[in-house]
Amino acid sequence: MVYETPESDREKAINEWLPITSNRDAKWWYFAFHNVTAMVRAGVLSLPYAMAHLGWGPGVTIMILSWLVTLYTLWQMVEMDEMIPGERFDRYHELGQYAFGEKLGLSIIVPQQLTMDVSSDIVYMVMGGQSLKKFHDLGVQPDVDYSYKAASTSGKVFGFFVGLGEIAFAYASHHVVLEIQATMPSTPEIPSKGPMWKGAIVAYIIMAICYLPVAYRILEIQKLRQRQHPLNIRETHLAYCYSKHLPCIVWLIKCKPKRFSLTWFINWICIILGVLPMVLSPTGGLSSIIVSAKYYRFFS
Rank of each mutant, 00 (worst) to 15 (best):
Y204Q: 03
T236C: 10
V250S: 13
H93L: 03
I180N: 12
L74K: 01
F299V: 14
I20F: 15
L65I: 04
I209D: 02
M116Q: 11
S287F: 15
A170E: 04
P19E: 06
V176Y: 08
D25C: 05
V275F: 11
G57A: 06
M1Y: 10
G194C: 04
G163P: 10
K12R: 13
S192H: 01
Y211C: 09
Y204W: 01
K133N: 14
I271W: 00
S300C: 07
T21F: 09
S300K: 08
P257I: 11
A293R: 02
A215D: 05
H229R: 09
A32Q: 06
P85W: 07
L74P: 00
S119D: 01
W251Y: 11
I289Q: 13
V250W: 11
N23Q: 08
I271S: 00
M196E: 02
L47N: 12
E87N: 01
A151V: 15
L231K: 04
G55K: 08
V36N: 13
S8H: 05
R297Y: 02
D117T: 14
K198F: 08
T183V: 03
K244L: 14
R24N: 01
G55T: 01
H245S: 13
I108L: 02
G96A: 05
V60F: 00
S107I: 14
K103R: 11
I249C: 12
E179Q: 08
R24T: 14
P230A: 03
D117C: 13
H174T: 01
E79K: 15
L178V: 09
R24A: 01
G155D: 10
P185R: 11
I108V: 05
L238H: 13
E82T: 08
P48T: 15
Q97G: 14
L231P: 00
D25S: 08
E16R: 07
Y3G: 10
G59H: 00
S243T: 07
V202W: 03
F265D: 07
A42I: 02
E11L: 13
K133P: 08
S288F: 07
T70V: 10
F265P: 03
N232I: 05
W29C: 13
I14E: 05
M196K: 03
Y295H: 08
P277A: 12
Y295A: 07
C248N: 09
F161D: 06
I272S: 14
H93V: 15
D143T: 01
K256V: 03
P85T: 03
V279C: 14
M127K: 04
R88L: 11
V214F: 06
F135Y: 07
I84C: 02
F260Y: 13
G59C: 01
A170P: 00
M80E: 06
G139I: 03
L65M: 11
P58K: 00
R217S: 07
D90N: 15
G59L: 04
P111L: 07
Q181R: 06
G159S: 05
R88C: 03
P191Q: 00
E235H: 07
S288C: 10
L54I: 00
P277Y: 03
E220C: 03
P85A: 08
Q130F: 08
R217D: 05
E189A: 15
I249G: 12
L164S: 00
S192N: 05
I221E: 00
Y240V: 15
L95Y: 01
P188A: 14
